[in-house]
């Protein structure tokens, strides 16, 4: 074999920490959005449901810590806050994380009955509460979608060849948010019933986007040899087996044909993690 044809193993630049970040940040956005929508459309919600804002905030902190740890120079993460580049998703994402976190904190302080209550009352002098949760919902949508757009703005074939990664990560993040809240509010029959309905819609939409994503990769954009990494071998199993079958198809069937069970949200969370894992790793293998 000619020496120049020898394959050099591609270094994986974004690894497990990035996958965890994408998963947790997407879920944080989904949790905030679901809590806000439940409060907005359903009227009053109980205190336990309102903790969704708190979970979203803490998950965001965890996500940011993971992101900073993944930097080669973690102490310099503030450099991203000194720049603003509209067409760099990472730059926009840094600001999105900041404003989402700020808004989540405001929402928490408004709902607080403890030490943060005076601060919450101060915030209410500027805008009504519903305005804060609507702005927060928009930022939550941005946060979940940006995790996909971040990947798509590269030269990695699997990530960059379709316009569907942002929407896929968005719908998956919202689905995770619904499932996370279902697991923590299992005694809230109203939310479990309604959450299951929203989760089903999200999962059906997610499957539709996955279909478009796969079709765009395999038909619309020509036969890229790299895409076989996503449909065969370990990553094929993780993407199709865990991400699609276990994480979407099975929960839909369980939601439709089975009685209300908490196994379904667990499967959705597992599937969503491995969906991201497979896409991130398969994309980086040459």
């Amino acid at each position: 074999m000619l020496a120049s044809r020898r394959r050099i193993k591609m270094h994986v630049n974004w690894g497990l920490l990035v996958v965890l970040y994408l998963f947790i940040a997407g879920m944080a956005g989904g949790i905030y959005f679901t809590t806000a929508m439940y409060e907005f459309f359903n009227g009053a919600i109980n205190e336990k449901m309102k903790k969704g804002y708190l979970y979203a905030f803490f998950l965001l902190i965890i996500a940011v810590v993971l992101l900073i740890l993944d930097l080669e120079r973690p102490a310099r993460f503030m450099h991203m806050m000194f720049a603003y580049k509209f067409f760099s998703p990472m730059s926009m994402g840094s600001w999105g994380l900041f404003f989402f976190g700020l808004n989540a904190f405001i929402t928490i302080s408004i709902n607080s009955k403890g030490a943060l209550k005076p601060l919450g009352e101060l915030f209410l002098k500027f805008l009504p509460y519903k305005a804060y949760i609507l702005v927060g919902s928009a930022l939550a949508i941005f946060l979940s979608a940006y995790t996909g757009v971040l990947l798509s703005e590269t030269t990695i074939t699997i990530w960059a060849s379709t316009p569907f990664l942002g929407s896929l990560f968005l719908i998956s993040g919202v689905s995770c948010g619904v499932c996370f809240l279902m697991l923590l509010n299992k005694d809230n029959d109203d939310f479990i019933k309604k959450g299951k309905m929203l989760d089903n819609m999200c999962l059906i939409l997610e499957l539709t986007i996955i279909l478009f994503f796969v079709l765009a990769l395999t038909i619309g954009y020509g036969p890229y040899p790299e895409i076989k990494n996503l449909f065969s071998g370990l990553y094929g199993f993780l993407f199709i087996g865990l991400g699609v079958v276990v994480g979407a198809i099975l929960p839909i069937l369980m939601n439709v044909f089975g009685k209300i069970s908490l196994a379904s949200p667990v499967l959705v969370l597992i599937g969503a993690f491995f969906l991201r894992y497979a896409i991130v790793f398969a994309g980086q293998i040459k």
Binding site: F33, M37, F40, I141, A145, L170, K194, L198, L205
Partner: peptide, 16 residues
């Protein structure tokens, strides 16, 4: 993503 966000919001309204 915007279209999907709109669909999710409609879905959230229908559900909640």
């Amino acid at each position: 993503s915007l279209i999907v966000a709109l669909l999710i919001t409609i879905g959230a309204y229908a559900s909640f």
